[in-house]
Design a protein around this nucleic acid. Structure first.
Length: 134
DNA sequence: GCCAACGTTGGC
DNA sequence: GCCAACGTTGGC
């Protein structure tokens, strides 16, 4: 079981949308590094969702329900999508500030590589963020 | 709204 | 194949 974090721009697709939809095809990724991460996701992996803009927060947890397939939003088969299912909303959203304040999380790509939209987390990093979010 | 960081494109 | 120019992302 692996752990991931994906970023979304709430103007285009927000956590609230996902809570209503229950499932979403995570498409539109146009960055090779991010795509390579999508391709490594396996069914059952847990994926945190982060909203950029303001406020910048991790909102909850999803699980992978479909492994990668061609991105339906483009004919270019270089790009792939996965399907994610709602699992849980955090009682307390975890802000970027909270994450930055913890030395244990100083290495995650969210901080080191702010433009990457799909990134791996270690089990420890995942657990720390979940324990802050409850 | 600005700008730094980064990825991509295209001329050489 | 290098690198300058450009576009985009995302934090502030």
């Amino acid at each position: 079981m692996a752990y991931w974090l994906v970023k979304t721009d709430p103007d285009s697709y927000s956590w609230d949308n996902l809570v209503k939809d229950k499932k979403v095809v995570w498409d539109g990724v146009r960055n090779y590094q991010a795509r390579n991460n999508l391709m490594k996701m396996l069914i059952g992996d847990e994926v945190l969702v982060y909203e950029s803009q303001s406020p910048k927060i991790v909102t909850g947890i999803t699980t992978v329900t479909k492994e990668y397939f061609p991105d339906p939003t483009t004919e270019d088969n270089a790009w792939v999508a996965v399907e994610l299912k709602f699992k849980k909303s955090f009682k307390k959203h975890v802000s970027l500030e909270d994450i930055k304040s913890l030395p244990e999380l100083g290495n995650i790509a969210l901080i080191r590589q702010s433009r990457l939209s799909v990134m791996p987390l270690t089990a420890d990093e995942f657990e720390i963020i979940c324990s802050m979010g409850k």
